[in-house]
């Protein structure tokens, strides 16, 4: 299979340096407004600083994928004597919370690394160097692109399950 080069974008979060100012949330929401920089609303930001000030917890987390269901458990992490909920680190827009969702519509939000900009703006506007941005090139196997038929089949699998679909296909093939 052919190898191709892919850019991997990484933001390193040095949470110990975070002073909890939330400039990242401000600039993120401003950049993603339409037209650009027309509104600011930290509730629309695709980055969130989880804050428990007196417990010395300031933790910036980026919005990741939407998930349709919440986790079955809520683990706790003890790090450096501080207790974190598992959700503190979680990037998902999930039914258990209103984080990373448009406040009006509830539609999920996801970090896009400020597509089109040289550097994600949260990185540029964090003057305390909590966030650093790196790009690296990796050689990866060229992914097999799915055709329309496969995409259609995939959604059928998602809806009816593979077993049912295989059964139907078998039945259909017998008719021929």
């Amino acid at each position: 299979m052919a190898k191709i080069k892919k850019i991997i974008k990484t933001i390193t979060v040095d949470a110990d340096k975070c002073n909890g100012c939330r400039s990242c949330e401000v600039i993120c929401s401003a950049f993603h407004s339409t037209p650009k920089y027309s509104t600011i609303n930290t509730a629309r930001a695709r980055i969130h600083v989880t804050t428990h000030r007196l417990k010395n917890i300031w933790l910036p987390v980026f919005a990741g994928d939407y998930v349709p269901a919440e986790c079955g458990c809520r683990d706790k992490y003890l790090l450096d004597g501080k207790e974190y909920s598992e959700c503190s680190f979680c990037r998902a827009a999930c039914p258990s919370r209103d984080l990373f969702k448009e406040p009006d519509s509830g539609l999920p939000l996801k970090c896009d690394m400020c597509e089109g900009e040289a550097t994600p703006l949260c990185v540029e506007w964090c003057l305390n160097d909590v966030l650093t941005y790196q790009e690296r090139e990796e050689e990866v196997e060229e992914p097999v692109m799915m055709g329309d038929l496969e995409k259609g089949l995939e959604s059928l699998v998602a809806r009816f399950g593979l077993d049912k679909l295989t059964g139907s296909l078998t039945r259909l093939s017998r008719k021929d």
Partner: peptide, 15 residues
């Protein structure tokens, strides 16, 4: 607690 927008008249110029 607030989750509403603050509007800028000329955002790009402001930035």
């Amino acid at each position: 607690r607030g989750t509403k927008d603050v509007n800028l008249a000329r955002g790009a110029e402001f930035m």
